[in-house]
Design a protein around this nucleic acid. Sequence first.
DNA 1: CGTTAGTTTGACGGCACTCAAAAGTTGTGG
DNA 2: CCACAACTTTTGAGTGCCGTCAAACTAACG
Lengths: 251, 251
Amino acid sequence: MGPGAEFRTASGSAFRHDCGLCALRDWCWPRNLDQPQLQRLHAVIRQIGPLPSHHHVFRANDRFTALHAVRGGCIKTYTTDLGGHEYVHGFHLPGELLGFDAAYPDRHRYNAISLGECSLCTIPYRDIDRLSRDLPGLQTRILALMSRDFSRQQVCTEGVDATQRLAIFLFDVEARLQRRFDGAHEFELPMTREDIANYLRFSPETMSRVISKLQRAAIISANRRRIRLLDVARLGMIAQGLKPQRVCSQN
Amino acid sequence: MGPGAEFRTASGSAFRHDCGLCALRDWCWPRNLDQPQLQRLHAVIRQIGPLPSHHHVFRANDRFTALHAVRGGCIKTYTTDLGGHEYVHGFHLPGELLGFDAAYPDRHRYNAISLGECSLCTIPYRDIDRLSRDLPGLQTRILALMSRDFSRQQVCTEGVDATQRLAIFLFDVEARLQRRFDGAHEFELPMTREDIANYLRFSPETMSRVISKLQRAAIISANRRRIRLLDVARLGMIAQGLKPQRVCSQN
DNA sequence: CGTTAGTTTGACGGCACTCAAAAGTTGTGG
DNA sequence: CCACAACTTTTGAGTGCCGTCAAACTAACG
């Protein structure tokens, strides 16, 4: 029953994917831990993956068993309503945490599914208490990460219209991905446009129309999931709600 | 400079507002702490208030100095954009926490202001680390409260139209207030309708129209801030997106 | 090469926003 | 206690963004 049990690699074995050597160590749990502390952390972390695409890490109403950090790929958290419509709660990128939604009241509120291949680093829940007592820095770190990730998941609520929300979203994703693809304002989205639409709370058709409009205005270029921000200044204006009228005129 | 310094009551003095005797003790920090632990917690907590209405607890970009628990009243967190429009991030009711938005990156992202008279219980940030090391239960408790409060602040993103969002909001607020006003589905909103509109992301006019519609349909009655849920079943249908067509026909 | 999922484009209608004004409520000072 | 001012709420008219329905197109996969 354990999600992805068959993909689990040995947790205590050697130093494969050692936290101290991980490229994400400054974004993830280990930050501010010294070498002995890193080893203790490493001893309880279970490294999971690679998970295949569209594999559920947990489902809504599952018990709270662990906290996860994304090592590679992208995890989507979502719910569906009675009409079958999907609400995407957030996208979790490398270095970001997953599973807080069950810290209270002990049941997950969302489904979590991998978009493309994913790898995770997991701390079993029963170890968190004990570990954070021994590693004082971890406690504060988890608090900070939780705060950071929650604030990032509220991007969709800012912005009054579809164009502004998408502009904010693009800047947000770029900032979160840039430590991996650091070309000049160019990056690859890990999710479909339908996922984005469900996250930003509008229809796939509207999503497509907004993308087309921004392309016609030469503000971005989009080829499949490949996005390039051509005119960061104007996109920034849109994100701040100061729509440059030229943008919409060509509508 | 400290917000509300002039309203601060002595923190270590006697047992005024003792955590162990507080009506909110099971909803707030003390939960699961024994008597000696409660006293240690009580020793660092500063009790603030009563604050007058429209008093800022902190402002956006302030340093992270403390976590607050609402003891009485209601705190609104919000930001304003360049156009002067206000975005309400959340309402914090008795037993709920405040200040997590600055856990990372050490600056508050929102303004926090009292709606009506308010009382707070505050833990200075520098004490949290030390305290949670000594009181193991507190660490887990803060995590749980943080998770609980964050999930509550996302009510506004659920629901596709204004009527559904308001229905969800009313159920949410009722659930959070019911331990104080436990009359049959009747309660007093601590915030103005404009605040609610800014929270649910629509205009005050739309807010008023939706209220009027629900009153004409005899689903709720609203007199100023006094709300009574007359037809919980139909309101529940609306909240779930299964709009009973009778509701809207009288439009 | 056929199928499927994802994306784009068009037509149409409705919900919500804006602008505007009036009515009701609260708070203040005379 | 009353009058006035400031704020909140309500209601109306007109407009526009976005949702729905529908169909064509593209890319990906077996």
